[in-house]
């Protein structure tokens, strides 16, 4: 007789991109099992502190309990949580950082990472757009350096990545939730100014709100800022 299988795959995808003095981390809000949508809104991206946001994807029950325990600073080795994690925030030197993890704890700092059901759709797109893979330099042009794209470009890349994944992967869709973490002293005008939001590049139907204090003490004038951005994705 088959043994009880304590794991399940609940679909969905997450993604993060680091900029020079900011990072963007996103996830869709669909939770599914095989061909059934369990709910159209389940959170995958969790602000932990004012300078770090965690995205969790894989087995939803483990994901929820993992975040619960991270918040209590516990660790676990045997009987791993079947979850892929991406942590995005600001490094101590003020640069945008993305760390990706696998279920057994291997981790790496990267400029960008996609994970989850649509990893195979997201990552090649990011490799091309963030790491400039398979792109050739125009004669006399500036060399490509990953991790220096402006925030507006990064935002439209994330939206495009998720709307494309929604088109081609049945487990991705319903809604997109993004968090932007900004280094202290960085202007948020490219996110909040009327002018930025009117620009051609600005993604449609995007709502922006600044997160209130995330519980940790911040020095006056040297505060990190976290913004929550959300937008609908196709529901079919």
């Amino acid at each position: 007789m088959s043994r009880f299988n304590p794991y399940e795959e609940n679909g969905g995808s997450i993604l993060a991109i680091a900029g020079q003095d900011f990072s963007v981390i996103a996830g869709d809000t669909r939770q599914s099992l095989n061909y059934s949508i369990q709910t159209r809104y389940a959170q995958k991206v969790f602000p932990l502190t004012s300078s770090a946001v965690l995205a969790v994807n894989g087995f939803a029950a483990d994901g929820k309990n993992f975040v619960k325990r991270v918040k209590q600073r516990l660790e676990r080795r045997m009987f791993p949580f079947y979850v892929y994690n991406i942590l995005a925030g600001i490094e101590e030197d003020g640069t945008g950082a993305v760390y990706s993890f696998d279920p057994v704890g291997s981790y790496e700092r990267e400029a960008c990472r996609g994970a989850g059901a649509a990893q195979s759709l997201l990552q090649p797109f990011l490799d091309n757009q963030i790491y400039f893979k398979n792109q050739t330099l125009a004669p006399g042009a500036e060399p490509f350096v990953p991790g220096r794209l402006p925030l507006s470009t990064v935002l439209s890349l994330v939206v495009d990545a998720f709307s494309s994944a929604t088109e081609r992967h049945i487990e991705v869709g319903d809604g997109l939730e993004m968090y932007v973490v900004m280094a202290p002293g960085r202007s948020a005008d490219d996110l909040t100014a009327e002018e930025a939001q009117q620009a051609k590049e600005w993604p449609s139907e995007l709502t922006v709100e600044e997160m209130e204090s995330l519980g940790d003490e911040q020095e006056e004038g040297k505060a990190f800022r976290v913004f929550r951005l959300s937008r609908p994705l196709k529901r079919d």
Partner: peptide
């Protein structure tokens, strides 16, 4: 499995295919 979710309409088992 300890899987949890909320939604304004819910159904378990066969109902998730036919009633939901």
């Amino acid at each position: 499995l300890g899987t949890t979710y909320t939604s304004p309409t819910l159904a378990s088992g066969f109902g998730s295919h036919m009633a939901q």
